[in-house]
Structure formats: C-alpha cells, structure tokens
C-alpha cells in the first residue's frame, strides 16, 4: 500500500464520515460546515486522480461560493428546536421507504453497469483533469453541450432577474 492508496482510504473514510455528519447534525449550521468538509475531501480525491483543475474549481464553486451562500441563508433564518416543524410518523415512514428504494435503484444500476465492472480507479495517472486537456475536450468534442448549458445558465439568470424585478 503506497502513499497514494493510504491517502485514498483516509480521504474516503473522512468523506463518508463527514457526509454522515451532515445528516446527523441537529444544528443546520453544523451540517453546512460538515458539507464543506465533504467537498474538501472529494477535492482531495480529484488531486489523487491528477485532476488539479477539477480540484480547484470544486473548491472555488462549491466550498467557496455556494456553501457561503447556504451558510448566509441559514444564519439569517432563526432555526431552533421550538420552530422545527413536527412531522407525523407516517410521513417519516413514507420518506424512508421512498428514499430507500431510490438507493436500491442506484446501487443496482452501478452494479450492473458493464463499463464499471472489472475496472480499477485510476490513481496518479491520466491527464484529462488538467486544465489544457479539459479545455480542449470541452471546446472541441463537447462544444454543443457546453454551449447549450451556458445558454441554460443565461436563461436562469434572466429568469431570476425577471422574478426579482416584479416587486
């Protein structure tokens, strides 16, 4: 077991632990902070995959911007135990069943996918995550999906402005 594998197991354990803490934490602010830690560990995995660009963009976009906004909103809301909505036992049961079936579907899809079988995770190899490779791929092979998604973002922005303008 080399350094890379050691790091891989460490990061995996940490990311699963903090992902569970996101769900378990009573305090929503704690949940957000654990989620930030999840993003950090996942970014660590990107580094192990030699995808430095994905690593840093994941940090900038998710940990740096989106989570700050999450934290911003949660801090503004007065969330405490008294104001917590009480759900009935049937609602909880229904939620557990639907969530569990979704998990089953995901697991079965991943298991049966022929591409995933007998393949090992690439560690320290491959250069698709480097910025020049990624840029070339995005702007040559995947140029149409890329442009379509950017148009989608633009329309979302215009929509947000339009909703905000009404008041």
């Amino acid at each position: 077991m080399g350094t890379t594998q050691l790091l891989f197991w460490l990061l995996s354990a940490l990311s699963i632990f903090s992902a569970m803490m996101v769900l378990i934490s009573k305090n929503p602010v704690h949940s957000v902070l654990w989620l930030v830690l999840v993003f950090f560990t996942i970014s660590g995995h990107y580094i192990l995959l030699n995808a430095q660009f994905l690593f840093i963009v994941n940090l900038i976009v998710y940990a740096g911007a989106i989570m700050v906004l999450f934290l911003f909103v949660i801090m503004l809301m007065n969330l405490n135990k008294d104001a917590e909505p009480q759900k009935s036992i049937w609602m909880k049961l229904a939620g557990a069943i639907s969530g569990g079936s979704l998990l089953l579907i995901f697991v079965s899809v991943v298991r049966s996918a022929s591409e995933m079988q007998s393949k090992q995770a690439l560690l320290k190899t491959g250069n698709i995550g480097l910025i020049d490779q990624l840029g070339k791929t995005l702007f040559s092979e995947y140029v149409i999906p890329f442009e379509i998604s950017s148009v989608l973002f633009l329309s979302a922005m215009v929509g947000a402005v339009a909703i905000g303008k009404k008041h």
């Binding site: 930030v36 430095q52 840093i56 940090l59 940990a63 740096g64 700050v68 934290l71």
Partner: peptide, 19 residues
C-alpha cells in the same frame, strides 16, 4: 499549474473565518 486558481480558491475560503 493552477497557481492563480489556487489563490482565488483560498481567498474565497477566507470568508468562513469571519462568518
């Protein structure tokens, strides 16, 4: 090879301390 983005990412982390 992503030095500039690294700087940018760390700067965006800085606000967590304040928040």
């Amino acid at each position: 090879n992503i030095g500039m983005l690294y700087v940018f990412a760390v700067v965006s982390m800085g606000v967590y301390g304040i928040m």
